[in-house]
Design a protein around this nucleic acid. Structure first.
Lengths: 192, 192
DNA sequence: GTCTATATATAGATAGAC
DNA sequence: GTCTATCTATATATAGAC
């Protein structure tokens, strides 16, 4: 872990991510960032000319973060149950301060007002996301850890939907526990 | 069914509901309404001085709509399974044009940027909502129709979360079928 | 790369005529 | 109850100095 300085550009993306996860894409402004980083709005526009550019950078960093998370875990050697547990643990981080939902959940919530390029990238991610869960389920059914119900594709969408909804409700109720309760329920359904 | 004229005030609430369910509370403006109803912004302010007032009216109408829906069904005589099926059918209406989520889901998605009075009312509704589902579950477990897993309170939150997430994803994917698939999954979990 | 200054559009809201 | 006109605040964005 080398002591790498965080550039202004990186700081902007990190803060914008937090703002999107708390207030939403249309809910945050360059002024919010300007205030908290003590830089002027024009400086943000230097790094990200349009808000859309910043939105895309935030989303790309989010996807990269997931990639890193998976790589760090030595995912391939884990059991399907352990993989799903990590999936839930990953999302749990958003609920720690009871003020955030996931980046993808926030953006999905604002679907109809998002710039087209952002929607395209979200669509692409969602395809990957569903396939990722289907793979885990396939493996788990094969090993006898999971009980299949309906198609695995449907089951995957169900898990993703429940997780998104749980994050929304946990933020609203200011309850990390609510999120964990729902995660337990999902796991319970899979285990039959 | 008498031919009752829809007042301007009612038209505003109906359209605002649709706008919130498609674009979100912060995503819609008085101008949107002005354009589509061919009235001036000032006229909307006459009926609803502040946007918050309109938001509250929309939410109250939403709650009233649920009340009417339940009353119309003769809910008390229905089986727990039928009650839940109606619950899913009620939410399915939002997905028909693949462009909406529920009013409560939309508002929950924007939790941190909502006016305080609206949040209070949402909180109150959510308490009722969870208790409503718990009652159905209790009855279903008693009759042997449902399989309990964890506490009934947790199971209720799980159903609510899944439904909210399913609506979000159905809007994004423009797929009514996605919503129904998730609803089937939930029912499958309950039936064991 | 950051600043000051400014442009332009839109949002929420009010005053007062009709 | 609806209109015209106007106000104020804020949002996104650009020009050009340092």
């Amino acid at each position: 872990m080398s002591a790498v300085k965080t550039s202004t550009k990186e700081k902007i993306v990190l803060l914008a991510t937090e703002l999107i996860e708390t207030k939403g894409y249309s809910g945050f402004s360059y002024q919010d960032i300007s205030d908290r980083l003590n830089i002027k709005k024009a400086s943000i526009h230097y790094h990200f000319p349009a808000k859309e550019d910043l939105g895309l950078a935030v989303f790309d960093a989010f996807v990269q973060g997931i990639d890193d998370f998976i790589k760090k875990l030595d995912f391939d050697r884990m059991s399907p149950t352990a993989k799903l547990a990590e999936y839930f643990r990953y999302h749990a981080e958003a609920t720690l301060d009871c003020n955030k939902i996931s980046c993808i959940g926030a953006m999905t919530s604002e679907w109809n007002v998002l710039p087209e390029r952002l929607r395209e990238r979200i669509d692409k991610f969602n395809q990957w996301h569903a396939a990722f869960i289907v793979d885990i389920l396939k493996e788990g059914v094969k090993s006898g850890e999971f009980r299949p119900f309906g198609s695995l594709e449907e089951q995957a969408l169900f898990i993703i939907a429940s997780t998104k909804g749980a994050l929304l409700m946990a933020r609203e109720r200011k309850s990390t526990e609510l999120y964990h309760a729902v995660a337990r329920q999902i796991m319970g359904c899979l285990k039959g």
